[in-house]
Design a protein around this nucleic acid. Structure first.
Length: 671
DNA sequence: ACGGGTGACACC
DNA sequence: TGGTGTCAC
């Protein structure tokens, strides 16, 4: 699965910045009295003291390790301070850590291309910055070198002898006869040291870093001297570093592939790997992975730093181990509601802070079937278009679950196999949102994407759009009677922490699956209109929530989601994919209310040519589709239609031309 | 059948 | 595609 990326010819300067026991630091910043004490962050304290997810270095010295239980940690290190992960909606809530991670990213993103690799890790491409420094103010010209930079570990430079190691570091950095690549790394050292100091100053978090010519080596280096230190891999040190390195230490080789290398080919160290020809490796692992392996054995990796500061998906999940497994639909629904709420909260802030909307909702679950044969059949994951609105996400998630459950339990209708009821247990649930696209920034997003519609070369005609949209799937093919009242009543106010599932189990049997209709059924959402499921393609997610919507879609309605999808498919004008370095922390750059004079001018244009220039008519977007828009977009849409009421109407001419004729197509704002 | 909750990515 | 599997922190 790793894929080979040949090294670019020019030497790059890549840094990997890794926060030291990040969750612990976040908690210690919140509670400074914990600083310096052996500390661990733990979640779910009920069972054996909860599971550790971060351990301070003081605690590590006591022998505490990640993946210990809280009680073990206490045994190993009686003084350890255990801090619990915040809990919301009955599940771990990692938002404080995400936010803290964003703080760091927004600092690190200032100096070059930046990739948020995980919640506490960042890659930086400092090539440009290093080259500039080399040109304008090379290290040898500086009268003093940053003290932090002088503390760097430079592979290949002996650091043991005495306390003049800083001198040797200085010498290395300033060597004027050095290879250009080394000079660039020398600049990188100084830049990274500076960045780390800035991170420490502005966030109080310490971090470690690796500086090298590619991501793989930088990543390797960042872990070599922790905490709060940085390590550099000069080109000349690569071979020595790698030859004795166990392959399992290399990223991507920590799992099955690494094991296979070891057991099938007898490869333990990268040096061993070096002995194998590229073709030999390809024979065993395919062309891509083979080449990739051959390359990394030589320290070659051309993987680029992706300019991405924001996640590409959001997910919310929870496991229900052993005795806590979910055994009833109503309990599953309850938890899906909780997960969906959290997910939606995060989607909302992504929209507000980053102006992005997600378009796909996916449900994952892990399950077991108690009786019966192939019990390791996987529970299928299912996805559908994401409709904005908490209850919509909740409904869709539940519908996806039911569709998947039917598939999982088999194509038998409502009858149990034999006389025993076949039962299921759910041990893990998660909902996630993906395919996140930027909304055209600033103001008038709606108009811009309308405009973009007419400029998309390949797929701008309404015919194409229509076809695309006509069968916009949603989660409700399996749309069951929601029986929400019943469910609500049946659901005990979350006593879930009790060891067993205490909720009623009435509906846990496939024999009782009448509430998960196999065939068509009337879909009772709020506006419940009856409709037939599409006959042939009973394939899971092919129908719309309401019959009304189906009808209207087939008349040529357009889903806003599709519009956005098409928009994002068009070449963006934005040159670099790197977002603003102001990420989320700086809570928002102008909410939609911050409009510009641009908008009024656009409005005028819009007023007259609405139906001719664009591939379709504004009025063709019906209410149900409108409802799928994120609330903020609805709001903007509305202001677009009624310029006089636009938030900063002051600047607008507000000719009102659109206000009467079109506005009635659109319902009151709904959340 | 506890390493939990999240994420990215390659493959088909 | 959407769905699956792997990997990592």
């Amino acid at each position: 699965m790793p894929v080979a990326r040949p090294e670019t010819s020019d030497a790059r300067v890549i840094a990997h910045v890794d926060m030291d026991c990040f969750y612990v630091q976040v908690e210690q910043r919140k509670q400074p009295e914990l600083r310096g004490l052996p500390t661990a962050v733990v979640q779910y304290n009920e069972w054996q003291g909860g599971g550790l997810i971060a351990v301070s270095y003081e605690a590590r010295r006591c022998g505490v390790k990640r993946s210990m239980r809280g009680e073990e940690a206490k045994a190993a290190c009686p003084d350890i301070q255990l801090v619990q992960v915040p809990v919301a909606r009955g599940k771990a809530d990692l938002n404080t850590y995400r936010t803290a991670g964003s703080e760091v990213v927004s600092i690190l993103a200032q100096s070059g291309k930046c990739e948020r690799a995980s919640i506490d890790e960042v890659y930086l491409d400092l090539t440009d910055a290093a080259e500039s420094m080399l040109a304008d103010a090379p290290p040898e010209s500086l009268e003093s070198i940053d003290e932090e930079a002088l503390k760097s570990h430079i592979l290949g430079i002996n650091r043991e002898d005495g306390d003049d190691f800083k001198e040797s570091v200085r010498d290395w950095i300033c060597r004027k006869d050095a290879d250009r690549r080394d000079k660039l790394l020398g600049c990188g050292i100084i830049i990274v040291a500076e960045l780390r100091k800035q991170v420490l100053k502005e966030t109080e978090f310490s971090c470690s870093a690796g500086v090298a010519h590619n991501k793989m080596l930088a990543k390797l280096a960042s872990g070599m001297n922790k905490p709060a230190q940085q390590t550099v891999v000069p080109y000349a040190a690569v071979q020595e570093l790698l030859t004795s390195l166990p392959i399992k230490k290399m990223k991507q080789l920590g799992g099955k592939l690494g094991t296979s290398l070891q057991t099938d080919l007898g490869i333990v160290t990268v040096g061993d790997l070096l002995q194998f020809s590229e073709t030999k490796l390809q024979e065993h692992y395919g062309i891509n992975t083979g080449t990739w392996l051959w390359n990394i054995a030589r320290g070659i990796s051309g993987e680029e730093v992706q300019g991405r500061l924001l996640p590409k998906s959001h997910g919310s999940g929870k496991t229900f181990p052993g005795p806590r497994a979910l055994r009833s639909l109503s309990n599953v629904q309850h938890w899906l509601n909780q997960l969906s709420e959290e997910l939606y909260e995060r989607l909302s802030s992504d929209l507000e802070q980053n102006k992005r909307i997600a378009s796909t909702l996916t449900l994952h679950a892990t399950a077991f079937r108690s009786k019966d044969s192939d019990s390791h059949k996987k529970f299928p994951s299912k996805s559908c278009p994401l409709r904005y609105g908490v209850t919509k996400v909740q409904e869709d998630a539940f519908n996806l679950f039911q569709a998947a459950l039917r598939e999982y339990m088999g194509p038998f209708g409502t009858k149990p196999q034999g006389n025993k009821k076949e039962t299921w247990r759910i041990t893990g649930l998660s909902v996630s949102a993906s395919k996140i696209v930027d909304i055209p920034s600033g103001t008038s997003s709606i108009m811009r994407y309308f405009q973009s519609q007419s400029t998309i070369p390949s797929c701008s005609t309404s015919g194409c759009l229509q076809e695309h949209v006509a069968v916009t799937p949603s989660a409700s093919e399996s749309c069951s009677e929601q029986k929400s009242a019943e469910t609500e009543a049946a659901m005990p106010p979350d006593k879930d922490m009790s060891i067993t599932d205490t909720s009623p189990d009435l509906d846990n049997s496939y024999g009782n699956m009448d509430m998960v209709p196999e065939k068509d059924v009337s879909c009772q959402s709020n506006e419940a209109t009856e409709f037939p499921t599409q006959s042939g393609s009973n394939k899971g997610t092919q129908t719309k929530t309401s019959g009304q919507k189906i009808k209207e879609k087939s008349r040529g309605m357009h889903s806003v989601v599709d519009i956005f999808k098409n928009y994002s498919a068009a070449p963006r004008s934005k040159q670099e994919t790197q977002e603003d370095s102001t990420v989320s922390l700086t809570s928002n750059r102008g909410s939609l209310s911050s409009s510009t004079s641009h908008s009024s001018e656009m409005n005028k244009e819009v007023g007259d040519r609405r139906e001719t220039e664009w591939g379709y008519k504004v009025g063709e977007i019906d209410q149900s589709v409108f409802d799928e828009l994120p609330y903020e977009i609805q709001r903007e849409f509305r202001s677009f239609l009624r310029p006089n009421k636009r938030p900063n109407a002051g600047k607008s001419k507000g000719d009102g031309s659109a206000s009467s004729g079109i506005a009635h197509y659109f319902p009151p704002l709904k959340r």
